[in-house]
Design a protein around this nucleic acid. Sequence first.
DNA 1: CGAGTCTTTCAATCATTCCTGAAAGAAGCA
DNA 2: TGCTTCTTTCAGGAATGATTGAAAGACTCG
Lengths: 181, 181
Amino acid sequence: MTPNTQPDTLAAAQDRFIATWGQMGSAWGISRTMAEVHALLFIVGEPLCTDDVMERLEISRGSASMSLRALVDWGVVARAHKRGDRKEYFAADQDVWTLFRAVVRERMKREIDPLLASLFEIRDMTRGMDGGVHSEISEHNLRVDELLQFFEIAQAVGQRFISPSGEGLQAAAEILSKTPA
Amino acid sequence: MTPNTQPDTLAAAQDRFIATWGQMGSAWGISRTMAEVHALLFIVGEPLCTDDVMERLEISRGSASMSLRALVDWGVVARAHKRGDRKEYFAADQDVWTLFRAVVRERMKREIDPLLASLFEIRDMTRGMDGGVHSEISEHNLRVDELLQFFEIAQAVGQRFISPSGEGLQAAAEILSKTPA
DNA sequence: CGAGTCTTTCAATCATTCCTGAAAGAAGCA
DNA sequence: TGCTTCTTTCAGGAATGATTGAAAGACTCG
């Protein structure tokens, strides 16, 4: 075993993780680069500056800057500073559940909330136009109402999950996953 | 109120719904068109043939065909036939929870499962290379293991949800959403 | 205040994903 | 089987979304 085996393997494992996480990202509506930047910060576990990110990921300065900024906005990466260094450093939150909560929060804001708003408006368009129980309009209203109910439940569950007391849900999930169906 | 007010309003509400659902779709990694086709079938509530879909959505034959096929593969739309008509008709499942289960199933297959497989491989790359508790490798392994744990829980919860006995989870979610945090 | 260093912005370019439409393929019927 | 009707496929074009890189902006320090 040469002295370099360990570092090389570590770097390879990191690269592999970055690629995997990047793929995952695209499936989640997060741009591949942004996911890769997060993966890098998460897996190295220590603060990195913009240039570190640029070099390791071979991306442009602009791209690195945008991605880092977005990750900070999402609340999954924190800015950090080193004494006697003017550069800004970035570190990923190391708690997986915190990360997941941030993702849920962000997606609720961008997806569920607008969807619910639209559904309410759609329902109001045909409110009180029912021409008897079996009319097309009533059936339409029924369908919209069912969706509304569903997404209201989804919103409530999601909100509970991301709330401070969401710890409870986390525990619930862990237990749930272990109990046989 | 002219005789045409109701039908027009209904059509408008349907269009609005289709647009909304389409947007939603893109956020979910489903192509907009595919989501719109589903929205149409869901909201009209009765079987439609390829030409109906093409006309209403103003899309090409190829696009309609592909979307319909994909929806059937997902299990959220069923083929139907009309007596004395050689055309194929398509009808969306009207149960929202069934729909949601299909989405979860599909996304697990495409996202969680491959991700878990990769994470296992990544872990194996640095297995048994730990150079003491505080080595870089150990810390790396710790991080990977935490992710593995998390996604194994996610997978278990998801599987339980989509299983036949997933009805239980549905009930749980409904209760959960109503209980105050 | 001005030089130097670091960060952000944004128009142009590039990549990816999606849709089209025509042609090939099935499937039913006489 | 040959004709008709309907469905699927797929190469190319269109649209959408991401990335670059250079220039402008912001901040520090002497």
